[in-house]
Design a protein around this nucleic acid. Structure first.
Lengths: 241, 241
DNA sequence: CGTTCCCTTGAGATCCGTCAATATTAGTGG
DNA sequence: CCACTAATATTGACGGATCTCAAGGGAACG
């Protein structure tokens, strides 16, 4: 699903642009001014409050988009995956979010103005950006619904189901995947404390629904888990290209 | 701030398009195929799950965007105001949200394809859509942060501060405004029960921070309330045009 | 001027957070 | 490969926040 990190990936081959594009469009993309950047785990790539004119397109690796609160807490907004765009905007403006790597991370850094230029240049690309933005909005809406209206155990299960689905390039959900998130990460995404997440994961294991230990998520009873979490993946299917 | 409902407002005069546009752009907008629609309170304008090819631009009135859960509960995602766009998408696709009026509501209904056409037609409009989408995303991110990381009283105060700011065309926060939301609406937006919202509003009154009774929000001590809620309106200022 | 929402309050149960202590795992350098 | 260290995970006890169930009271609207 992701290119080997050793090669030097090109933006025009990365997921959101794997669509029928004219040669002119491809040439345009490669001339966008995208810079390939590699980050070590736990690096800050973008910080809330900084004046930003950059956007990022994830190539590979795990990271999180989050807000920072005055008391040092944070709310994780999303774990973006390959092809997701962070900071889609038209102009320079202060960033309201931070982007932090979790594992080794490879991203394309693009000037925000280049995105505007791309939209002007190609209706096909404009449609792609609209679709990517719509899908990300759907994910965020589901995240808010999850935090606002599901109780802890269902909330955690829902997030792990979503991640499992998004990892497998959109549609199919594996019964098992590697997951480098800590219980602190989960807590910050789900609006709870890590201690409570720990108890919830224990409950989910004892309910024979799923197990998350040693960086591995195992779905023990996938249909029951989907029902338990109220997970309906249709919100992830929005025009994934 | 809003046109008199008796007149027949035109889309090219409505907030997101109050920007320097060429005559050709204005003519294009008026030919978009926008339909003016009026709804009574508590009508469903768009329902989650329906296949949708429409987008809506709010002209005036109160409404809510929400998700529906199997058990009949709902999570309110946003209370959109004049100029906000609902359903910004490139193509026909199933809707993952519902739109319901709260008061009498006037909206422009636009075919989704018309938005794509507008983006193709005018870079200025494309930039406008990107900006509107970025601002709405910032609002949604702050909403998730609010629900995930603030306790009840601060959460409620934060929402009422945000609404007060958005009502006054973006920047200035009035010390008093009319608010037709019920405590059930607040509860569904904040991820709590209406009974608990009731107790929280009582607490906020007794703390001399704000009063919400009889459809009226009064900020008794605005600086203290902002501090209490951790309210920093910079996320609302994103390129409001 | 009555009916329907909507608001208000109390008591008890449950979920979740805080504080504290310890065990386990992953990472690092020798 | 081992020893050491820091990060992460686990568990218990307790308190606070929020939900549920139940019952009235008040406001808005036809």
């Amino acid at each position: 699903m992701t290119l080997a990190p050793e090669s030097n990936p090109k933006i025009q081959d990365t997921p959101p642009f794997r669509i029928p594009l004219s040669d002119a469009d491809r040439a345009f993309l490669s001339g966008l001014g995208a810079t390939l950047r590699r980050y070590a785990p736990h690096e800050t790539i973008m910080r809330q409050g900084d004046d930003e004119g950059r956007a990022f397109i994830i190539h590979s690796g795990w990271s999180c988009v989050h807000t920072d609160l005055p008391d040092g807490e944070r709310q994780i907004i999303d774990f973006p995956f390959s092809g997701d765009i962070i900071g889609l905007r038209a102009y320079q403006s202060p960033s309201y979010i931070s982007l932090t790597s979790i594992t080794k991370l490879i991203v394309f850094e693009v000037p925000a103005k280049a995105l505007t230029a791309a939209v002007e240049h190609s209706p096909r690309l404009a449609g792609t950006f609209l679709s990517v933005a719509a899908r990300q909005r759907a994910i965020l809406v589901e995240h808010l619904t999850n935090v606002g209206r599901r109780r802890g155990a269902a909330r955690a299960a829902h997030l792990l189901l979503e991640i499992g689905t998004r990892l497998g390039d959109g549609q199919r959900l594996a019964s098992h995947y590697e997951c480098p998130l800590t219980q602190y990460d989960l807590a910050d995404a789900l609006g709870m404390t890590a201690i409570h997440i720990n108890r919830i994961l224990k409950d989910l294991r004892e309910l024979d629904l799923l197990s998350f230990r040693h960086r591995t998520v195992d779905f023990i009873n996938l249909p029951a888990t989907k029902k338990f979490a109220g997970f309906n993946p249709s919100y992830l299917l929005l025009e994934r290209i």
